[in-house]
Simulated assay, not measured.
Amino acid sequence: MKRNATVHVFCGTLLAATLLLGGGAAALADDKPLRQAAAAPEIKDERALKLLKEMTDTLAGAQTLAFKARGLVPIVAPTGQYVSLFGTTRVVMQRPDGLFVESRGDLVPNDLYYNGKTLTAIDPARKFYAQQDVSGSSLDAVLEKAVPAADTLAPFVDLLVSDPYARMAKELSSAIVVGQSMVGGANTDHLAFTAPGIDWEVWIGVKDKLPRLVVASYRGDGRQPNFTVEFSDWKLNAEVPAKTFEVSIPKDAVKLDFKLQGPTQSKQAEQGAK
């Protein structure tokens, strides 16, 4: 019984951790919907939308892209408060059917492989893995399936889809240019946006039009988590070795069902282990 519960919890958190969500997905998903705070004034600066479009066009136009990300991920502690963990991620993508994500740091170490045929998630430390046939599914469809509600929970996932502008500009009620600042040694345009239930900011390189920093703050009554992700080592249209997307499953690894579960189901699994 205890082993089965562990398997359920692992399956329910593996992909979320891969994409820097960690426990954040469970923290945001609750049995009761969040009450929204008072609506912010609607101010749309076309300069902000233009700069966002330039960034997303740069990403969407790349046949291959690679970057590193370091983020602060909020999870709920036993006391009920949010505590922040560091997550580090290396991402390599090749359109239309290649994705590799390596996640380390304070989160569960795991690797994610998509090669157009299978989607494989591996925990190399504990030697668990899950694999699913996704033949015929586009990368967009796989991301949507692997990370439900990614457009609201993981600002970093939106950078990987084929039309990031459509995702990021959806239902915006405000868009402003805050100014310019240095991030990671690069001069950036600092933009701020508001959408239903969320305020988010992005710092975009003035020269390369690439995201350097994203901060998302959830709006509502009570305590709400923030996500912070910093990007570095961008490489666009660089040659990617074919072996990058070849799955390497640890010897004697235990195969698990590839099934994502919500926090309520995970809690039930944990209770079953007691």
Results as ranks from 00 to 15, higher is better:
Val91Lys: 01
Thr120Ile: 01
Val76Asn: 11
Val108Asn: 14
Arg90Ala: 08
Ser103Thr: 09
Asn110Ser: 12
Thr79Gly: 08
Gly87Phe: 00
Gly116His: 03
Thr89Met: 08
Tyr113Glu: 01
Leu72Phe: 11
Tyr114Lys: 06
Tyr82Lys: 04
Asp111Pro: 13
Gln63Lys: 13
Thr120Asp: 01
Ile122Gln: 15
Leu99Phe: 03
Leu85Ile: 11
Thr118Met: 08
Val101Cys: 05
Thr88Cys: 03
Pro124Ala: 00
Tyr114Ala: 11
Leu119Ser: 08
Val91Tyr: 04
Phe86Lys: 06
Tyr114Trp: 07
Gly105Arg: 12
Ala125Tyr: 11
Ile75Gln: 05
Ala125Val: 14
Val108Ile: 07
Asp106Cys: 15
Thr118Cys: 07
Asp97Phe: 10
Leu65Tyr: 05
Gly61Ile: 12
Arg104Tyr: 02
Met93Ile: 10
Ile75Asn: 12
Asp106Arg: 15
Ala69Asp: 02
Thr89Leu: 07
Tyr113Asp: 00
Gly116Arg: 06
Ala77Gly: 09
Gly71His: 07
Gly87Tyr: 00
Pro78Val: 11
Arg126Tyr: 10
Arg104Ser: 14
Ala69Ser: 12
Gln81Thr: 13
Phe67Glu: 00
Ser84Asp: 07
Tyr113Ala: 03
Pro109Gln: 01
Ser84Pro: 10
Phe100Glu: 06
Lys117Asp: 08
Thr64His: 03
Thr120Phe: 05
Arg104Gln: 06
Val108Arg: 09
Pro74Arg: 00
Pro96Gln: 01
Ala66Glu: 04
Tyr82Met: 02
Asn115Thr: 06
Pro74His: 08
Ala62Arg: 14
Ile75Gly: 09
Asn110Arg: 12
Gly71Ala: 08
Leu72Pro: 11
Lys68Gly: 14
Leu65Met: 07
Gly71Pro: 13
Ala125Phe: 12
Thr64Ile: 15
Met93Tyr: 05
Lys68His: 13
Ser84Thr: 07
Ala121Tyr: 04
Asp106Thr: 07
Ala125Cys: 13
Asn115Glu: 02
Gly71Arg: 03
Tyr114Glu: 04
Asn115Ser: 00
Leu85Val: 10
Leu107Lys: 06
Leu112Arg: 13
Gly80Met: 01
Val91His: 02
Leu112Met: 14
Thr64Pro: 15
Val83His: 15
Arg126Ala: 03
Asn110Lys: 08
Ala77Cys: 06
Pro74Tyr: 00
